[in-house]
Design a protein around this nucleic acid. Structure first.
Lengths: 153, 153
DNA sequence: GTGGATGCAAAGACTTTGCAGCTTC
DNA sequence: GAAGCTGCAAAGTCTTTGCATCCAC
């Protein structure tokens, strides 16, 4: 984890250098907070955490920082359904997809080489070279008791 | 195609009967227009087509009709990126996913049994029974000339 | 110093809803 | 008739931006 966040920081900094963007106190806090979070976060959620460290940071700054992170390849956005976009730290080499329980809303992550490979094949058959993909599965926990525990969390 | 739209209509009507919803001129036009469209449409796009038949139909009515269609299982929504939601007629038995060209924006549809099966397996391994999924691939047309023709269309 | 960054508040882009009047069943 | 619709316009949600001020380089 230490390595991963260091790699992400390196990636971000080189991107910022290339584009002559500036390192600021706010961006530091936002970055640190962002990578320290597991899984997905909304802008609001991230802002709340950031404000614990620096209460004067505004929504727009977080918004713009996240946009920067996405541009730098440090973060990824998703819109699973309605409502706010969800951001998560990028994976530098591997990649994962999501499986969401309709009832409890838990988001499981997984990766599957068979599917990845097959996607390449399919794309090529249609005449495209694949750049990236998004796959989300929805289902219902088979362990109802466990599921119930997580409802609304 | 004739069969398909008849099936969708049947599905919608039985849903409406069960929920004691009413058949109206507007809903008829919206439904007919919707199923006659190939691929994806936005609410605005659909409304424009609907207005050709009945100019007095309002945005809200189309919006509510589409919501109804989705509830009835006749339509599906997607949000590929930013902007408006895209609606498409549901497939009654088979299912397809999307492959989008980053440059020209064309949306290709495909289905792949190997992937579908594998998804079931993955979900089960994580303790969930799969209900549905969304998969979108992005890539670049290998035929650049052809791609160029479709840019911005 | 200068160009980029920040915070605020305001504007956008879409989606959703309240309501009075109009239609179906 | 009563329960549902429709259209309009207004209100929400979230996202994005204009601008004066501030700060990193």
């Amino acid at each position: 984890m230490q390595d991963r966040s260091a790699d992400l920081r390196e990636l971000l900094e080189s991107y910022m250098r290339e584009n002559s963007l500036k390192k600021t106190r706010q961006r530091d806090v936002i970055f640190d907070t962002f990578v320290s979070l597991e899984g997905h976060t909304t802008i609001d959620g991230l802002l709340a955490r950031v404000k614990l460290v620096n209460a004067s940071v505004g929504y727009a700054t977080v918004y713009r920082a996240l946009k920067l992170f996405v541009g730098a390849g440090v973060a990824r956005v998703q819109r699973f359904g309605d409502g706010q976009a969800l951001y998560e730290a990028a994976e530098l080499d591997e990649h994962h997809d999501h499986l969401i329980c309709n009832q409890c809303g838990r988001i499981f992550e997984f990766e599957d080489d068979v599917i990845e490979e097959r996607q390449e094949t399919v794309a090529r058959a249609l005449g495209l070279r694949l750049t990236h993909h998004r796959m989300t599965l929805w289902g219902e926990c088979m362990d109802k008791a466990e599921c119930q525990k997580h409802v609304g969390s």
